[in-house]
Design a protein around this nucleic acid. Structure first.
Lengths: 223, 223, 223, 223
DNA sequence: GATGAATGAGTGTTCATTCAT
DNA sequence: TATGAATGAACACTCATTCAT
């Protein structure tokens, strides 16, 4: 790249079958995938539109054609990430589990989701750096009400009725605790590993951590 | 022609007091303060050296004179922030408290520190976006071993001896739980407020949250 | 705030024809031409990328797109200059000339080439200031073996066989002498003119000098 | 240097003997020496005032105090270099030598001077890049008429009278030839070594080259 | 729809020079 | 005389965005 590209000499052969994709949906998906990777890796300010274009295999112009500009693309990527998470959350079914088992399942589910989706965590981290200014603008995400809250409320009520959970617990706080214990471990995993000189990314450490988190959650709910 | 153009006349406002402080230590401190604000607000990539210069009242050149470059400045700001936190942590004295009271104190201390130092939280967030790559390079921070871990270990042992805490608890996990519950609430407070449509930054919400966190922590330790 | 400011309105002179050539090869050539002029005039350190951009009519960004950076551009300009010289040298044909006539021709050729290409001389001068560090990195130039050396060797051998040239003469030294007498006169012509208070750039002076150089060269070869 | 210099804390002890040199002449000489090295290494545009200050051990401010600015310093350095050369030239005494021996001596002298003073050569090279614009401004250098020309004229006349030199030879051209053969070899020695893949800086190569140059010069003068 | 050349406003960094002490 | 902190203009280089094809 640094030195004298070829003059591109007369590559115009309009008669040829034109092997270009010409598949808008595919191109858009490729751009979104590439953008997720780039944004997750560098945040909004650090991400490079050129890099997204190159990684997606699409032309840079297409990004602007389909998504308007960098910031709009950021928001769409964010929305997609939330949608995927909510979609997974909707598969949660704790109806047949006991309240105790159900809570354990939620904690484990959240923990594993974070472990499996570091890009989502990075996106969240980056958006918090932006003080959630883009998220706040999105009507879409606001409507994507998390089904988890209802599940938690249900489990809490069942548990309280059955006498295994304490009374007077705010489901939002339970949600926050579940989210904090899972998300925070992974979003701060780099600084924490450095500080403790312990590779928290290892499978063994993660398993131990998850067990601890489950214990913390359940210990807080038990009567 | 290539070098040394004439001063071009135009002596700019010679009437002004022409304050050139000439106080290196002050200038350095001003730069560091301004850098903390800018970096906390926009992260490493989003921060602008020009902005730091202007906000600090110093000349941009001074930043390079004293700190080398933007990335080196970032690291120093990070180190200073950690130092300040560790310094505060060193003031913690739970020797006269009961294990239960001590643990509650640690949780509250951490929570309040996060509430009081949003810039530190933002810095942490941003550094996690960088995958702790600068923190990892810093020998200084690695040596700043947190006194908290020892305090936690001591409280745990006392509590276990007294029969109020369960056995077999890893102090590092307790540390992580305390840090997660406090830090994560504040580092994700913007996205969470947006998602829940609830202003978690309000005093009442924060108080309630802190109470919940204390309950969670103690509930997890109790026999 | 950190990213993507609005276009700010102000559509600059929309009435203008808005010529955006869109001809990579032409743009590259323009940049190289402009760079040759700028580098020859000020050397590597003294040359200004902005000036090259302006003179070439291209956008500064294009220089980096096509050539990487200032130093890479310098090397390419240097390589092109050498290529042009070597190309001219390859047109030399002294097969039908007598050894004496052939040598005279080489001297005159070199002298005239220097007179005709002051920018090449300036480039050489500047690269010598760099201690040939860029030339030394160029594989291209090293492969551009000068055809002159073979021609000189051939003329020497023929002349020695015919008994008009002395024996034991190193062709490299003859090359150096030819090059020195021609190049040095022109590369130092400014300081020399000043020292002697004589305008050596005048046609008469140059003709006289060339005659002298031819005499010196032939006098050194004659038996 | 890149990271946080000490605040210089209160090093003011005006009562102390003040171990600073306080010797203007020495300081000036140090600056000139350092400037010669820096200018020779990088030319006018490439030289750094900071570097000169550091290398000289003097304060940067002193450079401006004593020499005005970078360009003025350049000129003075140039003048000093010329003065030194002229001074050496004035030691030349060929009165007792034969014309032939005398000419050989001049060539060898010049050659050896160039070999011994690469910085002077580099300075000349750099000033030629400047198109001798600073040299041209210097009244001093113009007055430093080279004694060599007179010596050459004398040798030529004696040689012609004695019948060993041809008639009608312009002493200026002889001067130019001597200067070219010596100076040019050394000023272009980097590019030439690279082109030929031969280390022309080696003692053996230089000796051979000098012999050749002497032969060329004398061959051109002989009847 | 798709391409990639082109643009201009920045962005980090450096430099010659000046001023307070 | 000497010091080194401070300055502002410039410099090499980058980036989001647009336009001609």
């Amino acid at each position: 790249m640094p030195v004298a590209k070829k003059p591109a000499g007369k590559s115009k052969k309009p008669a040829l079958p034109a092997k270009r994709p010409r598949q808008p949906a595919v191109t858009q998906r490729n751009i979104l995938d590439a953008a997720l990777v780039e944004f997750a890796a560098h945040g909004l300010a650090g991400a490079r539109v050129d890099e997204i274009a190159e990684r997606s295999g699409a032309n840079k112009r297409m990004i602007y054609e389909y998504f308007g500009n960098k910031e709009a693309l950021w928001l769409i990527v964010l929305e997609h990430a939330y949608e995927r998470m909510r979609a997974e959350e909707r598969t949660i079914d704790v109806a047949r589990m006991s309240p105790m088992e159900g809570m354990r399942y939620l904690m484990e589910f959240n923990f594993r989701f974070c472990a499996r989706n570091p890009e989502f965590i990075a996106l969240l981290t980056a958006e918090n750096l932006n003080k959630a200014s883009y998220l706040g603008e999105s009507e879409k995400i606001q409507q994507l009400y998390s089904p988890l809250l209802a599940v938690i409320r249900d489990l809490l009520e069942r548990g309280q009725r059955e006498g295994v959970f304490r009374k007077g617990i705010d489901p939002v706080h339970v949600y926050l605790t579940i989210a904090s214990l899972g998300t925070c471990f992974f979003s701060n995993i780099h600084t924490l590993s450095t500080i403790f000189g312990r590779d928290l990314l290892s499978a063994a450490e993660q398993k131990a951590r998850m067990e601890h988190c489950v214990a913390v959650l359940l210990g807080a709910l038990k009567v």
